[in-house]
Structures are given as structure tokens and as C-alpha cells.
Amino acid sequence: MTDLALTNFLIRTGDDCLIVGHRLSEWCGHAPILEEDVALANIALDCIGTANALYTRACDLGGGRRTPDELAFLRSVTEFRNALIVELPRGDFARTIVRQYLFAEYELLLFEALSSCPDPEVAGIAGRTINERKYHVRHCREWVARLGLGTEESRSRAQAAVDELWPYTAELFQKDKLLEELVASGVLPGLDGTSAEWTDVVSRSLSDASLVVPADVFQHVGGREGRHTEHLGHLLDEMQIVARSHPDGKW
């Protein structure tokens, strides 16, 4: 039972990484400066790499009945368990950077907690991921500052991004049966306090960049139960088209 719960947790965490990595990869060749083509591709690669590692462990725990590629390319929209924030369209550069910043701060806390997971494989993946996420946080936080303090236009675009994305942030810390079970059985360390810590860190960076954190807005949830926005279906249509068109194909 616990194995199944851990498997499901790894898959949904992998889904977050894959979908956000996919969104970032859409920038490749279209970034505002060449250095950002490199940087966004780098972060995308880290995220998709983490997804692959988490799926691989999930598949091993699941007895090898599925492969990581099957998880990525053959599940339908309602089977994905990523949080809604990662599937939203990439939007402008401000939207992409703000989303990645908010998400990377969450991931950093998550992987720090997971680095003491009793499953040594998971702890290993988490340990390797922490440094990457520290870089993501640093890179995106620097851009948040540039955009927030740069020009009137960049500030208003960054603020619009914060306002649009904030209603999707609580889902990252949403407690559900799966998490409770994993914490109760000692497979996951308690994540109590991470939400407050995240809010603290993120609020400080945003206000340092003269951006206003929205107060008490409605929070959307549903991704963890497969209740997604319309955007995910389009993303999957594109991501899965080649794999699904050749069911017997090896790549």
C-alpha cells in the first residue's frame, strides 16, 4: 500500500517537472536574448531530467509494469496529476519567469525534504536535484528583480504575471489523503511549515522587486485529481502526437 502511495506521489511530482519543462522548452529559439535561450533550455532540461528520474523510480516500485515513456506519452489528460500552475501557457517572458520562480522555490523546499526520504533512490534523486533548483531559484529571482525594477512596462507585466499566477500557488501545498498517508507511514517527512516558509521567501523576493503579493485571492485546485485546465489537453496533443501515431514504434 505504501509502495503504491509513494509511486503515485513520484508520478505526480514527475508530472509537475515534465509539464513545466515542456512549457519552458517552447521558448527554445524564441527567447528575448540568446543567453536566455541557453538558460531556459538548461532549466527545461533539468526539469525533464528530474521527471525521468522520478518516473523511473515510480516504475521500478510499480514492478516494471509501465515505463517512464509510457507515463509521459500514453496517459490521457485526466490521468496526469500535475498542479495546474505548470500547465498554464508560457505567456510572455514575465509570466514564464514568475511561474518558474514560484515553482522553483517550491521544488527547492520539496526536494530538501525528500532528501531524507527513507527510500534511498528517492533521497538520491532529491539530493542531486537540490543544487539544480538552487540555480533555478537564483536565475529566476534575478530576472524577477530586473523585471520588477527595470522599466514601467516590465514592472506592470511582472505584476500582471504575479496576479495571474498567485491563484494557482496554494495547490502546490495542498494536503490530501496521499500526502497524509505517506507522512503517517514515515515514507515522506512532514511538509508542515513548508507552505509558510515558501510564502515568506517568495513574498520577500517579490516585494524586493517592488511587486505586490495579492492578498487572499481564490485558489484553484484540481490537478492532483486529474481535473485540469483546458490547456493541458492541447499540450499533451502536441507532446504525444508522434509517440501515439506509431504505437509499435521504438525511438
Partner: peptide, 9 residues
């Protein structure tokens, strides 16, 4: 599309 970003930087 990237002009405003470069200006901000």
C-alpha cells in the same frame, strides 16, 4: 517581443 525585456535588463 523581447525588446521590453532587454530594455528592462
Amino acid at each position: 517581443d523581447g525588446r521590453w525585456v532587454r530594455e528592462a535588463a
